[in-house]
Design a protein around this nucleic acid. Structure first.
Lengths: 197, 197
DNA sequence: ATCAAAACGGATGCTGCCTCCGTACGCATT
DNA sequence: AATGCGTACGGAGGCAGCATCCGTTTTGAT
């Protein structure tokens, strides 16, 4: 069934084991030491040599993307279930917070994410998760616009950038109060003026 | 005359020469390669050994701060002269743009700046230029608030963060259009609603 | 001219990145 | 069960950058 898999040979067992071990270990290290963590250390702790790590994930971004992809798909799915009904303005707000938390998962994550979201390097593996999130944001924005809660000029992309910024600032150790004020400021920026009515 | 300088001995000539050469070279390298540029390379091109560089500037931040301090003071001075009169809303806007450009001077600059602005590491040399800019921003904000153009809840610190964010996003290679929309969004966020009247 | 303090600078050790290639493993075949 | 082939492994090694330490040189003072 499932599409044209295994052409010729059956994939080796150790490949999948190593890949899984690497992903698991990498996630732990990213959590503990941020996206800049030593890849050598990851390899060692996963019980493989550096060569193996680089064969599976040629760049740091590739590894990061692999770790994130699962998460981002889950995020989209979960949110789509829970929200989307009810008040679209509330849904958008919750979505933005969810993205912000997602971006804050690993210290230093916003930087490579932004680089991937913007740069026209289609070979950057992080571009995919980014695009998923941007279009998801756009969905929420459009829904809220139809309900008249959000200005027509706003794009999903804009709020993606804003959420990324907030996450970035958060990562720098800013106190929660300043953060809250910044979120308010942004919300005032995208909301339609006569929302209150 | 001039305050209590040279106590005991006259400062050596080579010290000042080296310091000047280092600052000059460092600025060039920061401009060309971003704040992450190789300090070894800077030292070599300045014609001194690594040891000398580290003696003058114990950390990368110290060097960066030294390069920036001059600039930031100039920025404040220049702006204070030109603006401050006329329309305070316009003045604030211009000031924010000026800060944004300042933050974009070197690629990667926003990161260490934010780290310094927030963290309670009073020993971080970048804290000083940051504080200068934050309080300057607060001046502009207050003036605009008195004129009723800016919401009462906004603090200079908030807009400092916002400007820093925009600069950060800009540094990631975002297209000018998205950037412009983000600025508009932020402006809509801090402006008083009945400004137009 | 001489001295002592201060500054220099490069050799040094360390960490992390990434590649290359001889080796070992695992799957298929007999 | 044994053989063979191709894939994947892994660690040694070259490279770059950081930061320090200490023997040597420069500099200003006497």
């Amino acid at each position: 069934m499932s599409a044209g898999e295994q052409r010729g040979r059956k994939p080796r067992a150790d490949v999948q084991r190593n890949r899984a071990a690497l992903l698991e270990t990498a996630q732990r290290h990213f959590l503990q030491h941020g996206v800049g963590t030593s890849l050598e250390a990851v390899a060692k702790e996963a019980g493989v040599g550096p060569g193996t790590l680089y064969r599976h994930f040629p760049t740091r971004e590739a590894l990061l993307a692999a770790v994130l992809q699962t998460r981002s798909e889950e995020l989209v799915a979960r949110q789509a279930d829970i929200e989307q009904l009810d008040d679209p303005a509330e849904a958008l707000e919750q979505w933005l917070r969810a993205m912000e938390e997602y971006f804050s998962a690993f210290s230093g994550l916003p930087d490579p994410l932004m680089a991937a979201a913007r740069a026209q390097e289609p070979d950057n593996p992080l571009t995919i998760p980014c695009d998923i999130l941007i279009s998801a944001t756009d969905q929420y924005v459009r829904a809220a616009q139809l309900a008249g809660c959000v200005r027509a000029s706003v794009r999903g992309n804009d709020l993606f950038l804003a959420a990324c910024s907030v996450a970035w600032i958060k990562g720098a150790g800013t106190d929660e109060e300043s953060l809250a004020r910044l979120r308010t400021l942004i919300a005032s920026g995208y909301r339609e003026r006569d929302t209150q009515a």
